[in-house]
């Protein structure tokens, strides 16, 4: 068996899949549409990851290096797959570079797209400069610049983080929970408090979903150690009085509407299906599930199976997913790919 396995996408899931396969002596062709590996944590400039607390550049950077250094992995950057024909054991992938790859199996690790906050205009992103996203705050932190109001570079004294931006919102057809934003927001809140001890940070929520062990490390810690304030209120609108941002909410405990001034408002943006999923669904001939993510055909028998035999899926391509779980899924899908190649021999 000399045909390589095709891994599509060089984020945490794809890097894990490629590494596992190469470690077992399998050849891998890793196709990445961007000009560098690492996926969202690297491309979007994340700071410290949840829950490890390691810097993205170190943690994911290490995974990238491992793949880049491997002789078994043929990395094709700035490349996409335009068509995938054939069956298990004998797939042919046409690449945007004009090359063709003959592969025994395919693992799709095509990831997600950050929710674009302009789709929620009443929360002021795109209208007011000091309304930013969690991704932008990650970049402010990871670049070493620190958290500053984009309008005039001042240090904010009051920051509001709005949860569920682009998640759990039927108004805009995004009914899913993006899973990671509560913990990421608590993490960012602590980072802001650490950098700017005079800055008050408020998190406006409908539910807090710092699931599992994240409860102590983020939910409690952010309150007990960092005095981050949690207010149960979904914000209605973000406007400006020309000097500060004005946030309209309800104090649900006293049942009164409130209007609160802030220097900076942070949207905890959710995870959308990859904007290319319709194209991907056609070129790979795999089904999408109703929300627009890639459908998992089987939860228990063949981990990572899609609607097409020999094509597997892992990570946030299948729905909102954490980095840790994406890595685990990448390894699991790699194992499923090996199993299926073995079975067709």
């Amino acid at each position: 068996m000399t045909k390589p396995i095709l891994v599509v996408g060089g984020g945490p899931a794809g890097l894990a899949a490629a590494h596992s396969l190469s470690a077992l002596g399998k050849k891998v062709v890793l196709v990445e549409k961007e000009d560098k590996l690492g996926g969202a944590p690297i491309l979007s400039g994340y700071a410290k990851l949840v829950p490890s607390g390691e810097w993205a550049k170190d943690a994911i950077g290490g995974m990238v290096k491992r793949v880049e250094d491997s002789k078994m992995i043929d990395v094709r950057l700035s490349t996409t797959v335009s068509e995938l024909s054939g069956d298990t054991g004998n797939f042919t992938a046409k690449l945007s570079s004009g090359d063709e790859v003959n592969a025994a199996a395919t693992v799709m690790c095509t990831g997600f797209t950050h929710f674009d906050s302009v789709n929620k205009p009443e929360w002021g992103f795109g209208t007011h400069q000091d309304v930013v996203t969690t991704t932008q705050v990650e970049q402010m932190i990871s670049s070493g610049k620190g958290v500053r109001c984009p309008s005039d570079d001042r240090k904010p004294k009051r920051v509001a983080i709005l949860l569920c931006v682009g998640s759990r919102d039927r108004q805009i057809g995004r009914e899913w929970c993006s899973k990671i934003c509560c913990s990421v927001s608590a993490n960012i809140a602590m980072e802001i408090r650490e950098e700017l001890p005079d800055c008050h940070v408020y998190i406006y929520y409908m539910d807090i979903r710092t699931f599992g062990l994240l409860e102590t490390k983020y939910y409690w810690k952010s309150q007990e150690e960092f005095k981050v304030k949690y207010i149960k209120a979904r914000i209605a609108e973000v406007t400006s009085n020309g000097e500060q941002l004005i946030v309209k909410g309800e104090d649900t405990l006293v049942k009164r509407p409130i209007t609160i001034p802030f220097d900076m408002v942070v949207h905890a943006v959710g995870m959308d299906p990859n904007v290319d999923n319709r194209v991907l669904s056609e070129s790979f001939d795999v089904d999408l599930e109703p929300h627009g993510f890639i459908d998992r055909a089987d939860s228990y028998g063949v981990v990572g199976a899609t609607s097409r035999d020999g094509v597997f899926v892992a990570g946030s391509a299948t729905g909102p997913e954490t980095i840790d779980d994406s890595i685990a899924q990448g390894k699991a899908a790699a194992m499923s790919a090996l199993e299926c190649i073995q079975a067709t021999k």
Partner: peptide, 18 residues
């Protein structure tokens, strides 16, 4: 009426509630 988890966005933006 599809469900409600008391997020308060309706009251936040309600003129009569003021």
């Amino acid at each position: 009426l599809n469900g409600c988890l008391n997020c308060g966005i309706c009251t936040a933006t309600c003129p009569a509630a003021h």
